[in-house]
Nucleic acid binder design. Structure first.
Length: 608
RNA sequence: GCGCCCGUAGCUCAGUUGGAUAGAGCACGAGCCUUCUAAGCUUGGGGCCGCAGGUUCGAAUCCUGCCGGGCGCGCCA
């Protein structure tokens, strides 16, 4: 991440960056992380070089980075400043690095500053710097890692948005979890977040739902309906809907023409489906702030408004729809339809916003819907299944066009979530849509548990395909990342319990007693605030899961030192001072694990 | 045919948005339990980062073209 890029300046206002020594107890209380503090120090050092005339004033610093080197032997922090700025300073990287090192080495918490390779500057921090971070974790507790990066701007995250025609199934699961974790991550990173669900209650699908409910309604009235007709939803979940309709309306609509009951049954059935969907989502701990109805959007004339404005801009015109590019339908005929000029924004062809019967296409309404969302947010994120990848360009085009209406176009991203293949003992689980025999979210959550489902969905980057094997995700071994992480936390808790039973409490009075191995653990945990920020910027919650895996591994590794060396155990009975410091360390590592798991919506268990 | 995603150890995947000698788990080999949970840890071998060019101080990462896999390509949603 650029030290002085725009994200960084949002997060850490200039006043903080120029503070002479941010690494003080007071700075810690302000939630200044070590990383942010040293970004400021480098800035200050470069200013000093400018003042001395070593560096020309005003060189762009956006490419300057400060990061923890991959190889810990290189030090705690590294910057490429000398390499990046050497050309502009008309000198070579090493000469500039030497000048910069002289400035940085003088800082109180820098133990060592050295030049490496082509001109990297490696900083090794004093132990006190890391021990201070341990104190910061304790002071901030559940807020450790919380960032001001988002600067209070509002991000609307739309996720799930499954058609309200049945229960949630596993096809919806990954997007639901990724969206929900992303929402939590953005909130933690300082954004206001709106969690939104778009209810497609206006299209052909919900008419089919209403007809299906009507069959179940007649069934509830005692009619023999036989097999559910082809093309309708056969699922048994509509039986109670039919019963409720029968109880409410008696036989009034049993033989009535469709026109008399379709709208009514549709509304009743959609409402019932939404109750069911919310219950299903609640099983995963997912709660949206807002359910937006497509039918309502249309009733308020929003698509018409959008069309009128787009026509005025010549972004919608009446034209001939191009033939589909793939396999050609036999009944294809060219028709004139109102088309949005998405080709101007890189799409392959212009896209219809209305059907030939005058009703809105999904896209036509969706365009107006996104404009509606943009009015109350600074940025939009949609989480979609990969099967909708083909429509990304048109909606991005539409949002760019529509939001330009109010000034600059709003940032808008579509995150595609790839398919999950369900396996049972290595064999694909067969799903037949025709019979309505899909694996529901509820079944899976009830079988393996909420935490397992959520964590597993986040153990892969969203755009990579994933297998979900029922046997593997509940396995109690280190092969299973959910378990591995929970086990680390449970170990910490059991250690604290045992310590308490023996009369020891965590204490920060003698943290200097902690050795090199303990500091390694602290250094890793201290990466958490920066990780939160980079994961939020990238909109990638899975990074939190991977970080926690690394932290758990480091913890288990440290723990096992005690196998061979009794003096490295957390509880050293004859040394209360050291035990207090170690238990303090354990407490704070546990805190970071909890904070990370909280972002993922996973409960940290205290014993297993 | 076109668009999007993916291609990294035998397998499953990370890779800090362009940084230093590309990492972890599984599997395979060798070790560690009188213990705060061995449900764990240590250690060894294993790589043309799909291929070929390009951009620059520097590429697994960015650009172009191929190859292979997945998803999609009606006025459906």
């Amino acid at each position: 991440m650029p030290v002085f890029g725009c994200a960084e300046s949002l997060a850490h206002p200039a006043t903080r960056l120029v503070r002479p020594n941010p690494l003080t107890a007071r700075a810690m209380a302000d939630n200044t992380t070590l990383h942010a503090a040293f970004a400021g120090q480098i800035h200050a050092a470069l200013d000093a070089l400018e003042a001395k005339g070593v560096l020309p004033a005003g060189l762009p610093r956006h490419a300057v980075t400060l990061e923890a080197p991959r190889d810990p032997s290189h030090g705690d922090l590294a910057t490429n400043a000398a390499m990046v700025l050497a050309k502009g300073a008309a000198t070579n990287p090493r000469a500039l690095a030497e000048a910069l090192v002289a400035e940085l080495a003088a800082l109180p918490l820098v133990a060592e500053a050295s030049i490496a390779g082509p001109g990297f500057i490696n900083l090794r921090l004093a132990d006190a710097a890391w021990l201070g971070e341990l104190g910061a974790i304790a002071a901030l507790g559940a807020d450790y890692g919380r960032s001001t990066l988002g600067a209070g701007t509002t991000v609307n995250v739309e996720y799930v948005s499954a058609n309200p025609t049945g229960p949630m199934h596993m096809g919806h699961c990954r997007g639901a979890v990724v969206g929900d974790a992303l929402a939590a991550l953005l909130e933690f990173a300082g954004h206001k977040v709106v969690r939104e669900y778009y209810v497609n209650d206006a299209g052909a699908q919900v008419a089919v739902l209403a007809r299906s409910a009507h069959v179940r309604y007649r069934e509830a009235l005692g009619q023999a309906v036989g097999e559910i007709p082809e093309g309708l939803y056969p699922g048994e979940y509509l039986i109670p809907v039919g019963q409720a309709l029968a109880a409410e309306f008696g036989d009034r609509y049993a033989a009535a023409p469709e026109g008399e009951w379709l709208g009514l049954f549709q509304a009743r059935a959609v409402a019932a489906m939404l109750v069911m969907i919310r219950d299903d989502l609640a099983l995963l701990g997912i709660h949206h702030d807002l359910f937006s109805s497509e039918a309502e959007l249309q009733a308020r004339g929003k698509p018409e408004e959008a069309e009128a404005w787009l026509r005025a801009q010549d972004l919608v015109y009446d034209g001939l729809l191009e033939a589909p590019k793939g396999k050609m339908p036999e009944d294809w005929e060219p028709v004139a339809l109102p088309l949005f000029r998405s080709t101007r924004f890189g799409d392959d062809q212009d896209r219809p916003i209305k059907k030939s019967d005058g009703s809105w296409t999904y896209f036509g309404a969706d365009l107006a819907y996104h404009y509606q969302k943009a009015q109350s947010a600074d940025a939009l994120v949609d989480i979609w299944g990969a099967d909708h990848a083909g429509t990304v360009k048109r909606i991005k085009a539409a949002v760019a066009a529509m939001t330009a209406r109010d000034g600059a176009a709003k940032p808008f991203e579509v995150k595609l979530v790839q398919m999950v293949q369900l396996l049972r003992d290595g064999e694909p689980v067969k799903m037949s849509k025709r019979s309505g025999n899909f694996v529901t979210l509820r079944e899976v959550v009830e079988e393996v548990g909420k935490d397992v489902v959520r964590f597993t969905m986040l153990t892969r980057k969203p755009e990579a395909q994933m297998d979900f094997d029922f046997a593997h995700v509940v396995e109690a071994s280190k092969d299973n990342p959910v378990f591995y992480l929970q086990y680390a936390h449970a170990r910490i808790c059991s250690t604290l319990r045992k310590g308490a039973a023996e009369g020891f409490a965590p204490a920060d009075g003698a943290l200097h007693r902690l050795g090199a191995e303990e500091l390694e653990l602290v250094k890793l945990a201290a990466q958490f605030p920066r990780l939160v920020e980079s994961a939020a910027v990238a909109r990638e919650p899975h990074r939190v899961a991977f970080f926690l895996g690394d932290l758990a591994a480091a913890f288990h590794s440290y723990w096992n030192l005690g196998n061979d060396r009794v003096e490295k155990r957390f509880i050293v009975a004859q040394d209360a001072e050291l035990t207090g410091a170690r238990l303090f360390l354990a407490t704070q590592i546990g805190q970071v694990i909890r904070n990370g798991l909280a972002l993922l919506g996973v409960v940290a268990v205290e014993e297993m």
